[in-house]
């Protein structure tokens, strides 16, 4: 299979995820979309590693996963904190800071 297809898939995934961030109100889902974006990056890295014939990209994907995990930890903590305060995970509810 042509590795470029993976790139296209990754791009589509990235776009879907990005749109997800834009349209979903729920902080958790938005957050998951971000993770999906990171994963699409991983796909790109892996695909390019294959295409360019070195392992750097694949190794990088591991780094990304670790970072993503860390991000999840922090992110969930923040979302939890918000939820406990406001009893809501809607991103749109948090708009005291504006103008």
């Amino acid at each position: 299979m042509n590795p470029e297809n993976y790139l296209i898939l990754a791009a589509i995934l990235f776009a879907i995820a990005a749109v997800g961030v834009l349209v979903r109100r729920n902080a958790l889902i938005a957050f998951m979309c971000v993770e999906l974006m990171l994963n699409s990056c991983n796909l790109v890295l892996a695909a390019f590693a294959q295409m360019r014939g070195n392992l750097d990209g694949q190794v990088a994907a591991f780094f990304v996963m670790v970072v993503a995990a860390a991000e999840v930890v922090v992110g969930l903590a923040i979302v939890m904190m918000i939820y406990r305060t406001r009893r809501s995970t809607s991103v749109d509810d948090a708009n005291l800071l504006k103008l």
């Binding site: 990005a18 834009l22 991103v91 749109d92 708009n95 800071l97 103008l99």
Partner: peptide, 17 residues
Amino acid sequence: MRKLQNGYARSYALTMV
């Protein structure tokens, strides 16, 4: 212009995109 700074994170993300 300050109206663009409407406090909605999703709107900010849209601006970025």
